[in-house]
C-alpha cells in the first residue's frame, strides 16, 4: 500500500505518456482525412460532434490536436535522441581522454550553454525554412551540452572502477572500454536528463509554431495556438485545449524524469520532479 503510493508519480507519468502515444498511433484511424481540410461549420464551441470545437475556418480542433500529437512526440524523441547521442559521445570522450581534448570540448560545452538557444533556433529556421526534420535536428543539436556535461562527470568517476580497469588490463581498446563498459554504467543520469530534454523539445516546437515558424502544412499543437491567438475572446477552446495537451505531455516527462532522478540519488527523497 505504502509502496504503491510511492510509485504514484511514475505510474501517472507512464499512463499519460501511454495515452499520448496511443493517440498518436490512432490519429490516422480516428481522423482519416487531412485535419487541415475544413469540413465543419466554423467557430463551433465544443459539442458532441466536435468535442473540442472547430476553428475559424471550420477545422476540427480535436483532429488537429490528435495529428499534432505525432509532431510533438517526434520532437520529443527525435530531438532528445539526437541530443542524447551527441552529448553521450562527446561527454564520454571528453571525460575519458582528458587533456587537450577535454579542455577544448569542455570550453565548447560552456559556450553552447551561454548562447541563447531559442534565438539561434529562430534565426536558423527563419533563414533555412521551417522544414520539420530540419527543426527537429536543430533543436536536438542545441540541447546536447547538458548531456555531455553529465556524461563527462560520470565517466570521470567511473573510469577508475574495477570493471573498467579490468577491461583495460585485459587488452581492450580505449573505445571498447569506454562505450561497452563505462558508458552503459553511467548512462542513468543522462537518461533522467533526457526526459527533461524531451519536455523542452516539445515546448520549443510549440514556441516556434507560436512564433509562426513551423511548417504551415502540418497540424501541430503550437500551430493551433498560433491560429487561435486572434480568437481569444470568440473561440477560447482553440487556446485552452492545445495548451492542456502540451501541459499533459510535459507532465508525463517530468513525472517519469523526476522518479528516475530520485532513484539515482537516494538522498533526494520526495524531491520535486
Amino acid at each position: 500500500m505504502r509502496s504503491l503510493a510511492r510509485e504514484t508519480p511514475l505510474i501517472l507519468g507512464l499512463a499519460l505518456l501511454a495515452f499520448m502515444v496511443a493517440v498518436a498511433l490512432l490519429a490516422p484511424a480516428l481522423y482519416p482525412s487531412n485535419p487541415l481540410f475544413s469540413n465543419a461549420p466554423p467557430m463551433q464551441p465544443p459539442d458532441w460532434a466536435y468535442p473540442l470545437g472547430t476553428d475559424h475556418t471550420g477545422r476540427d480542433v480535436a483532429a488537429m490536436l490528435a495529428w499534432g500529437t505525432r509532431v510533438s512526440l517526434l520532437f520529443a524523441f527525435g530531438a532528445a535522441g539526437i541530443s542524447l547521442v551527441c552529448g553521450t559521445v562527446l561527454g564520454a570522450i571528453s571525460g575519458y581522454f582528458g587533456g587537450l581534448v577535454d579542455d577544448v570540448l569542455s570550453r565548447l560545452f560552456e559556450m553552447f550553454n551561454i548562447v541563447p538557444r531559442l534565438f539561434l533556433i529562430i534565426l536558423v529556421v527563419a533563414v533555412f525554412g521551417s522544414y520539420l526534420w530540419l527543426t527537429v535536428a536543430i533543436v536536438g543539436l542545441t540541447m546536447w551540452p547538458s548531456n555531455a556535461r553529465i556524461m563527462r562527470a560520470q565517466v570521470l568517476t567511473l573510469k577508475s572502477r574495477g570493471y573498467a580497469q579490468a577491461a583495460i588490463v585485459s587488452g581492450a581498446g580505449p573505445f571498447t572500454v569506454l562505450f561497452s563498459h563505462v558508458v552503459p554504467n553511467g548512462i542513468g543520469p543522462v537518461m533522467a536528463n533526457s526526459m527533461l530534454q524531451m519536455a523542452y523539445a516539445v515546448l520549443t516546437e510549440a514556441g516556434l509554431a507560436f512564433l509562426g515558424l513551423s511548417d504551415p502544412n502540418i497540424a501541430s499543437w503550437g500551430q493551433v495556438l498560433y491560429w487561435g491567438q486572434g480568437f481569444i475572446a470568440s473561440a477560447p477552446w482553440m487556446i485552452i485545449f492545445p495548451g492542456l495537451a502540451i501541459a499533459m505531455l510535459l507532465m508525463s516527462f517530468h513525472l517519469i524524469g523526476g522518479t528516475l532522478q530520485e532513484r539515482l540519488d537516494p538522498r533526494q527523497q520526495g524531491a520535486m520532479a
Binding site: 515546448l203 510549440a206 495556438l225 487561435g228 481569444i232 495548451g243 510535459l250
Partner: peptide, 9 residues
C-alpha cells in the same frame, strides 16, 4: 509544465 505563451493567453 504550462507553456509560457499559453499562460499569457
Amino acid at each position: 509544465c504550462m507553456p509560457i505563451f499559453w499562460i499569457g493567453m
